[in-house]
Design a protein around this nucleic acid. Sequence first.
DNA 1: TATTATATTTAGACAAATCTAAAAATTAAA
DNA 2: TTTAATTTTTAGATTTGTCTAAATATAATA
Lengths: 217, 217
Amino acid sequence: MQSYTEENYLKEIYHLSQNGQAVQTNAIAEKMQTKAASVTDMIKKLSEKDLVNYIRYQGVTLTRKGEQAAISIVRKHRLWEVFLVDKLQFKWDEVHDVAEELEHIKSNILIERLDAFLGHPKFDPHGDPIPDQHGKIAAFNFDQLSKLKIGDSGTLTGVTEHSSPFLKHLEKLGLTLGKKIVVQDVLEFDGSIELKLEERVLNLSKEVSNHLLVSLS
Amino acid sequence: MQSYTEENYLKEIYHLSQNGQAVQTNAIAEKMQTKAASVTDMIKKLSEKDLVNYIRYQGVTLTRKGEQAAISIVRKHRLWEVFLVDKLQFKWDEVHDVAEELEHIKSNILIERLDAFLGHPKFDPHGDPIPDQHGKIAAFNFDQLSKLKIGDSGTLTGVTEHSSPFLKHLEKLGLTLGKKIVVQDVLEFDGSIELKLEERVLNLSKEVSNHLLVSLS
DNA sequence: TATTATATTTAGACAAATCTAAAAATTAAA
DNA sequence: TTTAATTTTTAGATTTGTCTAAATATAATA
Ligand SMILES: [Mn+2]
Ligand SMILES: [Mn+2]
Ligand SMILES: [Mn+2]
Ligand SMILES: [Mn+2]
C-alpha cells in the first residue's frame, strides 16, 4: 500500500507523463507545490518500491505497477466527482478539492459499489474519461475548439482547465458540457473565435478556446 | 484544524468520557492501540490547543471546543455509515472501517449535503444517534435487553458492540433493528434470556443481551 | 506507615515528509 | 570548448507521531 502522499505523487507523475517523455523533478515540484529536494527524496522512495523508473538527473517514468496505482486513484477521483455533482448538487467548479481527499479512501468494495450506484459513468463532470476497474480508459477523440475552422460544428465534451474561475466563467456564458456550438468566425488578429450557441453569438479568446474540447458533428 | 490523528484521539476521548469522569491515559492507549507514552505526548498537544483539560496524573476531559470537534467527527462517521448501508448496500457489519476513514474528510458543505441526501437520518445503522449540525444529540431512552423482566416487550433499537462477528451473529438470528421482541423467561442460572421473535423462540446469553438496546412498548 | 504494585510521565531515538543551503551534474551560450 | 545558467541532488535540520526504557507519581496492601 502507498501513503496518501505517495499516491498524490504517483497521480501527478501520471498526469505529467501524458506526452510520453520522462517527467522532470522541477515539473513535479511545481505541480505538487513543494521543493525539488523533496521531490528527489520521494522519487527515490517510489523507485525503491518499484513504482517508478528513475535514473539520476534523467527524470522518472511510471512502471506498470506505478501506472496501475495512479490510474486507480484517477478512477476514484473522477467517480467521487460524479457523485458530488449528480447526487449532492455540487457545481462542477466545487468538486475538485473534496475529490482530492476522497480519492485516498482505501476500499475496493466501496469504489465498485459507488460506480454501480452512479450507473457506471464513462466521464466525469469535466468530460474526463473514468478508467474502469481494470484500468482501461475508453478511447475518445475530441478536438480543441481552437483548432476548428469556420463552419465546423460540434458538441462541447470537455475542459482541460479545472480552475474554479474558469469553470464559473463558462457557466455564466452557458457553455456547459453537451451544448452544441457552430463556429461562425475565427479572427486572424488575436485567434479569438466567434460561435453560435443556442441563438446567441459568443466571442471566446484563443486562451479560452484552447481549453475546450468538442466532438465534431 | 486538527490532524487526522488528533481527530481520532478526540473521538476516542469523547467515547470514553460518557460516564462523566476524567479519562485515563491507559484507557486511551488501549483503545487507540498505542502506548501510554504516545498518549501522554498527544494529550499535551491537545491541551496546548485548548481541546482537552489536562492535569498530570489526573487524566483528561474535553473542553467545550474539544467536545464540539469530537461530536462533529461522530456526526460524520455516522452519516457516512448511513450512506454506505442505505445507498451502497453495505451490511451493518461492513461499514465501520470505511467510515473510520471517511469521517476525516474536511468539508462542511459535503456533510450537510450528504445529510440532506440521506433525508436527515436520526440514527445510524447500529442505532446510535446522529448529532445535528449544531452538535445537538437527540435524547433517547433505551434499555439494555438484559435488564428486562419476564413479560416485558419492546423493539430492538440499538447495539453497543459493533464487531463484525457479533453483528453477523445477530443477523443470522434475525435480530435486526426494528424487530419486536417479548421476554418469555430469564434464567436464574446463567442470566440468559428467552424471547419470542416473530413466532420463533430464541435464547440469548447474558453476554449478548447486555449489548442489545430496546425501547419498551 | 512502609512497602509493593500500578499508572503515568520523561528522556532519548526513529521514520516519514518536508525544508534551506550548498554541491554536483547537465544543458545552453559565448 | 570554456563559461555560464539551469536543473538536480546531497547534507543537515525540522515537525509529527511513534516507540522503548527508565524515572516518578499515585494507589493498594501489608
Ligand atoms: Mn489527493
Ligand atoms: Mn474532473
Ligand atoms: Mn478515524
Ligand atoms: Mn455506527
